[in-house]
Design a protein around this nucleic acid. Structure first.
Lengths: 148, 148
DNA sequence: CTCAATGCAAATCATTTGCACACCC
DNA sequence: GGGTGTGCAAATGATTTGCATTGAG
């Protein structure tokens, strides 16, 4: 996962502010700290990672708040949640202009990312055929290294 | 999800027998009952559904056994496990000749299935580019009914 | 000041584990 | 008969909930 640049983080923070204002929600420092923690992380993070990371900085945010906040951020479209094969959820920034898919390595558990534009074509076909709006996708290939 | 026909169930049972024999595992009635319960169900079933369904027939199989057995069946490639948005796993028959994808409706939670052959092309591209063997995929589109 | 958000701990839910018993081989 | 597989109940781990307290507006 590519580290986000400052511009992307700024945009996300502005979006968060806008959405919080729009709904009359409070702009608490925790909400910004959690957003930043997810956006400044190379890897997918789970709830415990986030707590640890925040603890190392100034905040000790409680797990309950992290759960609440990631859900809020997900609803705002700022963060994406994934399950992969195990039953622990992980989170990543959601750059809407960059919808990507995942390759999950069955041996190591490593997760790579890719973008393929043919998926857009499938998406459009399905939208028409089923008369729906597709808001999101999750494509995961489970793979192993090729043996020599 | 289409109901499987008798032929598919027979094939799956034969496969199960072969795999159990091959590994010297026991051919317990529970294993066949659970396989059948998954193959004769229109919808994706979770662990509790399976227990209930089996209870209504002759068997009262314990949850632990159901968990063990679906894992075994998954390893044998006879059953597929899915997570969708919630954190409860669901299971479905795995017709290897029919690799399908899912559309998960965000309002109702309904899940539809489709097959698109363009996905095969993406798969091949990724296998070459990353030098891996892709053993499985999970493609889920999250969608809403189109408004008038 | 007021009420939405947070923190903490207890509760819940899915899944896993340990051990005694049953039954496939 | 012997040991694998099952059933039960207790353990674990992730997530949710209830309630007292805090701090944003």
């Amino acid at each position: 996962m590519k580290l986000c640049n400052q511009k992307q983080l700024d945009a996300a923070q502005d979006c968060l502010t806008a959405r919080l204002n729009a709904q009359g929600f409070r702009k608490t420092p925790e909400r910004y700290a959690i957003l930043k923690a997810i956006y400044t992380e190379q890897n997918h993070v789970d709830i415990d990672c986030l707590c640890d990371k925040l603890k190392k900085e100034k905040y000790a945010v409680s797990k309950a708040t992290v759960y609440n906040t990631v859900e809020l951020l997900e609803n705002f479209g700022l963060v994406k949640k994934h399950h992969f094969r195990n039953q622990k959820a992980v989170y990543e920034p959601n750059y809407t202009e960059l919808r990507h898919s995942h390759i999950c390595m069955l041996d190591s558990g490593d997760v790579y990312e890719f973008i393929d534009h043919q998926l857009e074509e499938i998406r459009k076909k399905i939208e028409e055929k089923y008369n729906v709006n597709i808001e999101d996708h999750s494509l995961i290939f489970y793979a192993r290294k090729k043996q020599k």
